[in-house]
């Protein structure tokens, strides 16, 4: 469904700040696959997402979505098929607008016309969809989103993303900025939606346990490369110790990322 062919992303080429963020990445994701991605800071995880969603034009290589070359398609066009959630809960919703207005915008992707979609029927349907979040948001349709907590806002973002039934979702450490309890809730909701709608998903996480326990394929990135690609039976029997050992075998160095090991 998604295919990356030899994607290379170089920032500030030819200057002292030259930074090779992605090195010749080739990757193919099948429909319905749930991929977790780990790697230390600066490994290129978010840059990988940026190249998939179209935030930047890659320096070289090709992005194919549904067997269509979308390398040069702008982000807003690709957004019709790709949903993305950022670490920062503020990026997914408009804080100075009400919940219902936010949901109307997310409901249908693409150019909006001069139609007033919001009516009683739609409000009822919004309420119904908000109930499973178990955050009491179904009573707050007219409140500004800015009044919600980070966890509520991220849960709403998640629901809004799912509402348009995207083919692929990119989760960029979307629970990392939340407190542990809310992070757990949002993660549970995410897994629920992915199962319910059979969504193809890629999730960046700093939490090794999550990366191992969740999903059916694991990618480990380091210095702009995918150094590990584990799936199937091997993924099911994976443990943190095995993963650390594998990293050492490949890179011949200690995995020195406290953030990854401690979590």
């Amino acid at each position: 469904m998604l295919e990356l062919k030899n994607i290379t992303q170089v920032f500030h080429p030819g200057t002292v700040n030259e930074n090779i963020a992605l090195q010749d990445i080739s990757l193919s994701i099948a429909r319905g696959e749930f991929v977790t991605i780990i790697g230390s800071n600066g490994a290129g995880k978010s840059t990988l997402f940026n190249s998939i969603s179209g935030t930047f034009l890659p320096t070289s290589g090709e992005v194919r979505l549904h067997d269509r070359n979308v390398t040069k398609e702008p982000e807003y066009k690709r957004a019709q098929h790709i949903g993305r959630i950022f670490q920062n809960p503020l990026l997914g919703t408009a804080g100075n607008m009400s919940l219902e207005d936010n949901m109307v915008m997310a409901m249908n992707k693409g150019f909006k016309g001069l139609k007033i979609s919001l009516n009683t029927t739609l409000r009822d349907s919004f309420r119904e969809q908000l109930v499973p979040l178990q955050m009491g948001l179904e009573y707050r349709l007219r409140d500004n989103v800015g009044l919600l907590s980070g966890g509520q806002r991220q849960a709403l973002t998640l629901l809004m993303m799912v509402m348009s039934r995207p083919d692929l979702i990119l989760l960029d450490e979307h629970t990392a900025a939340l407190d542990p309890k809310n992070a757990e809730i949002v993660l549970e909701l995410t897994l629920g939606y992915i199962r319910q709608y059979d969504i193809t998903a890629m999730m960046i996480t700093h939490n090794m346990h999550h990366a191992i326990a969740i999903g059916d394929r694991l990618l480990m990135m380091d210095k702009g490369e995918i150094i590990l690609d584990i799936r199937g039976e091997e993924k099911r029997s994976l443990t943190v110790e095995k993963l650390v050992r594998k990293f050492q075998e490949i890179r011949k160095t200690e995995l020195k990322n406290d953030e990854m090991l401690l979590s």
Binding site: A79, R84, M105, K109, L114, S164
Partner: peptide, 20 residues
Amino acid sequence: DLGLTLGALGNNPQMVISSG
């Protein structure tokens, strides 16, 4: 719908992009 999206632009351009 168009007006709402216009209203979101000043507040959160990323969200407008995300909504296609």
